[in-house]
Design a protein around this nucleic acid. Structure first.
Lengths: 207, 207
DNA sequence: GCATGTGAAAATCTTCACAGCA
DNA sequence: TGCTGTGAAGATTTTCACATGC
């Protein structure tokens, strides 16, 4: 499936394309050109074609890409064609919101377990998931859970990551405002909400 | 304050540097070299020096940067030296979590108002903020609120953005899974949580 | 004719390497 | 000596432009 070196940026854009395609495919059009998609997403059409070519995704000259096929191919490249069982570590305000978040399903991601250290929370149900003790994180491998979301306070983020890695998790989405160190085989994507907000004022015009 | 064209990437890194500096300054060291900071953040020291130079931030050869001064300068560049009053649109699960989120204060960002369309929510207090009707969004300008967070469902995100822009907001942090169109003078930064998670499986090793 | 796929060019971003100063 | 600031080199990414195929 790989065609030479693939820019990380291209991987980052693939879910954007997928989201746009899913939206546009609801309109029922059988095929879509790179220009159609580019206009919709406000990006450059060549960029889209080049990105697709990195992954060996090809369309029909003079026509475009078959919408359904394209969606399937992108899903397959991103390994979203199989459901990924995901665990949540830390069921505070943010964690609870993530459990209720409706957007994951679209991408074949399913939060199937939630963990917290607070004894008061353990056993409680949030969005149909029963909160378990963090001491049970070791069961993840047996339960075929390969992704995890860290939504614990910063000071315990690294410790949580260590446990998750030991439990066989292969990818971590980190919401804590901390840099996390893991073995190279594990991928971490970090979202620091405050840091994104912190960039906004810079772009504000005077007045 | 501008020294020639500044890469967007440099702006994106500034809050990362700031976060690291705040952490390291707690240790009490008066000055810090680009290497110290780079090691701590796992980045390249030249990158840091070059980034600083874009903004006219200079250190002392042979010594480094004066920690306190550096923090102040970065805050000023990012316009975080004045408090930014921020509004939240949409007090669902995610919105509530954001209201409770402790990380904004560090960057001088303060959520001072929350809005929702659900009559059942209006008047209720969440994290000490009384939820107001979305019909009151027009009051933002008078209340000196210049930033906003969109945490409404995707299908009303654009409508909400339109109202916010009309109400004088100059920057928007968008959590809805939608592309939002605004006048050029307004900056939008979007965070699509599911999309970030969707990139993870790609990097997973087989097995 | 129309839209793809792709080398080549352009633009951008990162790292190097070193002169210069405390 | 040690670390900065910065031109220049290198690496990467984006865009162009056009030959190719439907």
């Amino acid at each position: 499936m790989r065609y030479g070196r693939i820019p990380d940026e291209a991987v980052r854009r693939l879910p954007i394309y997928l989201r746009g395609l899913l939206f546009l495919s609801e309109g029922g059009q059988q095929s879509i050109s790179s220009k159609d998609l580019a206009d919709f997403l406000s990006v450059n059409p060549s960029q889209i074609r080049k990105d697709f070519s990195y992954f060996g995704v090809f369309g029909t000259p003079g026509v475009g890409y078959k919408t359904e096929t394209l969606i399937k191919q992108i899903r397959k490249i991103l390994k979203l064609d199989v459901v990924h069982r995901t665990a949540l570590a830390g069921v505070g305000n943010l964690g609870s919101a993530l459990l209720a978040y409706p957007g994951f399903g679209v991408y074949g991601l399913d939060i199937v377990a939630a963990f917290d250290t607070d004894p008061k929370k353990i056993g409680r149900k949030v969005s149909n998931i029963t909160i378990e003790s963090s001491s049970k994180l070791g069961t993840l491998r047996r339960r075929k859970i390969d992704l995890a979301i860290i939504a614990v306070p910063g000071d315990s983020a690294q410790k949580t990551a260590d446990v998750l890695v030991k439990a066989g998790v292969k990818g971590i989405l980190n919401f804590s405002p901390c840099y996390i160190t893991v073995p190279r085989r594990v991928k971490v994507i970090s979202i620091d909400i405050a840091m994104d907000l912190a960039r906004l004022p810079y772009y504000m015009r005077a007045g």
